[in-house]
Design a protein around this nucleic acid. Sequence first.
DNA 1: TATGTTTTGTACCGATTGGTAAATAAATAA
DNA 2: TTATTTATTTACCAATCGGTACAAAACATA
Lengths: 209, 209
Amino acid sequence: MNTKEAIKQPLKPRGRPLAFDQDAALDAALNVFWTRGYEGASMTELTEALGINKPSIYATFGNKEALFRKALARYLAGPAAFVTEVLNEPTAKGMTEKFLIGTVEFLTNENNPRGCMIVQGALTCGAGAALIQQELVGYRKNYEDKLAERFERAKSSGELPENTNCSALAKYLATIHQGLSVQASSGASKDELMAVVALILKKWPANIG
Amino acid sequence: MNTKEAIKQPLKPRGRPLAFDQDAALDAALNVFWTRGYEGASMTELTEALGINKPSIYATFGNKEALFRKALARYLAGPAAFVTEVLNEPTAKGMTEKFLIGTVEFLTNENNPRGCMIVQGALTCGAGAALIQQELVGYRKNYEDKLAERFERAKSSGELPENTNCSALAKYLATIHQGLSVQASSGASKDELMAVVALILKKWPANIG
DNA sequence: TATGTTTTGTACCGATTGGTAAATAAATAA
DNA sequence: TTATTTATTTACCAATCGGTACAAAACATA
């Protein structure tokens, strides 16, 4: 028995092998949810997009909610990863710039559906999607909190003045981000949104405090 | 025959009279669409909210799309009327202040559902709601254009400098408005959103041009 | 009272929703 | 080969979707 092989494949799966790539299927599901929102994406459309039948989806990913959550995790770890990465920028000003410019590039990337999935996945919905709706609200709040924490650190380090209202500043950035998402899904171009961001950054951080 | 009576009621309706108030019914429909969005509002929920049966809805207002459009018209003429009224403010600066402060008061009014119906009525949806989705995009663009025109007038009158990018400034305001709508529907309080607006207005219009 | 007109309530329509039972197919293990 | 395990396909489920047929009810006119 080869040790290397034993490590890479400690035990071969017993039954019939999966006939599709799980990551590719999740990408396809993400694309549908991203475009349609949670409720707007029907299992029929998802089935066609994934290229597999419904029982395979349910056996592999669980029900529609579970599939949405797994697609959402892939969204956060993949195309939307820049949002958490910018938190590590050395300065709050640099973070703000990278965040806003990165947001516009992300929202108008022609390889992606338009808009941010966290924002538009379930803004309004029927009663059956209330749980997903609340979860997305939580994701938005969570990121806003991280922005506020970053501004607090900048205040401690002296980059921002002592009287800075960090939570208001974070909510301001989140508001811009969410508005840009609506704009992008309404057809706004990269140049148009970059012009908006330029207006915002021109006087930043002068409008703090 | 009394002339006054003839003018007020030129001819009495022939058949069985309507058993409900059309405006009150439209208000109830507006409330459901405003909360749920176009697709999230089911005819069953609408029926229960209006207090009348489905055949009465269809006979009076038409199908779901027609009902939505009539509720939307009532929304624009009623709770959202301030948005067009602020365009008549004597100065662009005054308009901007009234627009942003009015937006926050509107979005956090406890008598209303949270969020702007034009923004959230059909941001993402299934294929069947594509027409309503596009119409709402049109309403957003239309208002943004009116903001841009107002800024152009302010440029002509000398209130704004000659190098002002009016369309970018209008898109900036629209972006803020749409972001505030998402924030309000996520549970942000009036005080929190007023703090955001205060940040924006503090340096306005310094970030022009 | 009889007739015509309109709205009402009930009961239903086909299509689609998310989700699944059951048989078959493809792999490994004995 | 035979048994076991897992995945696939087909066909279907109850519930809900938007929308409507039909008859009873409530009015004005004659």
